[in-house]
């Protein structure tokens, strides 16, 4: 079958690929483009490890077909740091010891980023709700919740 051309913006730079029809965005990002920050956990939309941001919305890249992504802007965790300076969420995860094996971390950070983009000063319940589609095996979630709350506070201090 003929390959399908796909063009989108990934973390601010233009990407163009030919993919097989039916290729997931997760596969295209990891194995075609080489951005391995989205992780393939369950490949069926239940673990959240593959989460990316498409045009500002949190999406599961394992359930998104690459060919539907023409013209969109995609953000992954690999695109968050600027010139070697970590994003406030990345710094907060680091300082709160919110990561152990690290496999869920990029998806958690994506979910948290979309939350903070829409709700800069979330309540604890809002953080819990935002992370509820992401599974973590190691941390018991509490350090992750605290990291997101800390990042929100540091954002609002910078804005003030």
């Amino acid at each position: 079958m003929a390959k399908v051309p796909v063009q989108f913006t990934l973390n601010g730079s233009e990407k163009a690929e030919f993919v097989d029809s039916g290729t997931t965005l997760l596969h295209a990002l990891r194995d075609k483009i080489g951005d391995t920050s989205p992780k393939g956990g369950c490949h069926q939309g239940t673990c959240g490890a593959c989460s990316v941001i498409i045009d500002g919305e949190l999406r599961l890249s394992c359930l998104t077909l690459a060919e539907t992504c023409n013209g969109v802007a995609i953000t992954t965790t690999a695109g968050l740091s600027e010139a070697g300076v970590l994003h406030p969420l990345q710094r907060a995860f680091l300082e709160a010891f919110a990561t152990q094996c690290g496999f869920c971390t990029p998806g958690m950070i994506m979910a948290a980023k979309v939350l903070l983009d829409h709700t800069p000063n979330p309540s604890r319940d809002e953080v819990v709700e935002a992370l509820s589609g992401n599974i973590c095996r190691c941390t018991g979630y509490e350090p992750i919740i605290q990291a997101v709350l800390t990042a929100a506070r540091s954002n609002s201090q910078n804005a003030a």
């Binding site: 239940t46 018991g140 979630y141 919740i145």
Partner: peptide
């Protein structure tokens, strides 16, 4: 057979620890 059926407490089910 998957994370819908293999259950674990999520971030909303945490006990005060």
């Amino acid at each position: 057979t998957d994370f819908n059926q293999y259950l674990m407490p999520g971030p909303g089910d945490l006990a005060e620890t």
